[in-house]
């Protein structure tokens, strides 16, 4: 069966619709002992900033019911380190490599995009609009249509021919309006959802479970929220949507495609089993057959009311 997924014709075509989500798969090399990373549809690598970033105070991870609360604070060695030392090791000729861009200033987004777009090994850029605040407004970039569009537009201008993916979180007034604004600003694809802000506490110690108090919730707990967002956005925009949030099985992939996703990104499932993403890729054809899906394009968005 044909599993190919075209996100941007000629520029971002995946051999299957299953990618790794930013912040959960490292650069991809971390998972090479557990499977062939070139068999994935794409690798969205960990969040990058212009300069090295120490990240959040410890502890950074806590388990919650069916979920994982994390605050990493975009710890990374900076874009130069990625381009010089990490990218050359990645099998970019065999699998699309998509870095995830983080900044507090629109100008930094632009500079980051320019540096990465110059690299032949980069297939597309994902703009993270939900993890850092816009220095001007003091809010997350995707908090309103104006700041979201401004960031996407800056990346798009600097990205040349590289497709731009705008990643949205649902913690905003109206995710559909923001989706429309990033589409108008030039985004080629939307990915959603990023994590949802949460808090986990230890009553005995009377402390937050995370060093930075609050963190981003991911995992199966957020899947219904992600499905709702993908369904709403895919009806509102003409660009493809990558579904992200709590995907653990090939059936979950079909759920996201049923509500309108062109592709998906597997996130924290890789933490509960390092083979999870490879198993999902392997099992997708059989699960499609089980559910009578013979054409993913025809199946996409076929949710009945």
């Amino acid at each position: 069966m044909d599993l190919r997924a075209t996100l941007v014709p000629g520029l971002l075509e995946l051999k299957n619709p299953i990618m790794s989500a930013a912040g959960t798969f490292g650069s991809g090399l971390e998972y090479s002992p557990y499977g062939d990373i070139t068999q994935l549809g794409g690798i969205i690598t960990n969040g990058l900033t212009l300069r090295p970033c120490m990240g959040s105070p410890m502890p950074r991870v806590a388990e919650t019911p069916s979920g994982l609360l994390t605050s990493i604070g975009t710890q990374n060695d900076g874009v130069e380190h990625f381009v010089r030392h990490v990218l050359p090791q990645l099998p970019w000729q065999d699998v699309p490599i998509i870095p995830n861009l983080n900044a507090n200033f629109v100008e930094d987004f632009s500079e980051l995009a320019g540096i990465l777009a110059a690299e032949p090994g980069i297939a597309a850029l994902e703009v993270n609009l939900s993890c850092r605040n816009d220095n001007r407004s003091g809010q997350r970039f995707n908090q309103n249509t104006v700041t979201a569009a401004r960031a996407v537009s800056a990346v798009k201008k600097a990205a040349g021919s590289k497709p731009v993916i705008a990643k949205l979180s649902p913690q905003i007034m109206d995710i559909v309006e923001v989706a429309r604004s990033v589409e108008a600003a030039g985004a080629d694809v939307i990915s959603c959802i990023g994590t949802v802000q949460g808090l986990a506490v230890d009553v005995r110690e009377r402390r937050a479970m995370l060093g930075s108090i609050t963190g981003g919730l991911s995992g199966p707990a957020v899947k219904p929220l992600a499905l709702r967002c993908v369904w709403q956005i895919s009806h509102a925009v003409d660009i493809p949507v990558i579904g992200v949030g709590g995907i653990r099985t090939a059936q979950d992939v079909l759920e996201f495609m049923l509500v309108g996703a062109h592709a998906v990104a597997v996130g924290s499932a890789s933490f509960s089993d390092p083979e999870a993403i490879f198993r999902i890729v392997r099992e997708l054809p059989a699960v499609c057959e089980e559910y009578g899906v013979s054409d993913l394009d025809a199946f996409r968005g076929s949710l009945q009311g």
């Binding site: 912040g23 971390e30 002992p33 557990y34 806590a62």
Partner: peptide, 17 residues
């Protein structure tokens, strides 16, 4: 001993300086 989620170096949850 730090809290870890992945054990592979991917999640950046267990950093030391």
């Amino acid at each position: 001993e730090e809290r870890m989620s992945c054990g592979t170096g991917a999640c950046l949850g267990c950093s030391a300086v």
